[in-house]
Simulated assay, not measured.
Amino acid sequence: MRLYATYGTNDLSRAIKFYNAIFSVLELPRLPGWTKDRAGWGTEPDDGTGFWICTPFDGNPANGGNGTMIAFPTQSAATVRKFYAAGLAHGGTDAGAPGTRDYYAPDFYVTYLRDPDGNKLSCFHYHYDPARDPGD
Rank of each mutant, 00 (worst) to 15 (best):
M1V: 06
Y4R: 07
Y7K: 09
G8V: 01
T9E: 13
N10Y: 13
N10R: 03
D11V: 10
R14A: 15
A15W: 07
I16P: 00
I16A: 13
Y19V: 11
Y19E: 13
A21W: 09
F23L: 10
S24N: 15
R30D: 07
P32R: 11
P32M: 03
P32Y: 03
D37Y: 10
G40L: 01
T43M: 02
E44D: 15
D47T: 01
G48K: 08
T49Y: 14
G50R: 04
G50H: 00
F51A: 09
F57C: 05
P61G: 02
A62K: 01
G64P: 09
G64K: 06
G65K: 06
N66C: 06
I70Y: 15
F72R: 08
P73T: 08
Q75A: 06
Q75M: 00
A77I: 06
A77T: 00
A77G: 13
A78N: 10
A78K: 12
A78V: 14
A78T: 14
V80H: 04
R81C: 09
K82W: 03
F83G: 07
F83A: 03
F83C: 06
Y84S: 01
A86S: 03
H90C: 11
G91D: 12
G92E: 11
G92R: 10
G92T: 11
T93M: 12
A95E: 15
A95T: 06
T100P: 09
T100Q: 13
R101H: 13
Y103D: 14
A105T: 15
P106L: 01
P106E: 01
L113T: 10
P116M: 11
D117F: 13
K120E: 07
K120T: 02
L121K: 05
S122Q: 13
S122G: 14
C123W: 04
Y128D: 00
P130V: 00
R132P: 02
D133Y: 12
D133V: 01
D136C: 04
D136S: 02
D136W: 06
D136N: 04
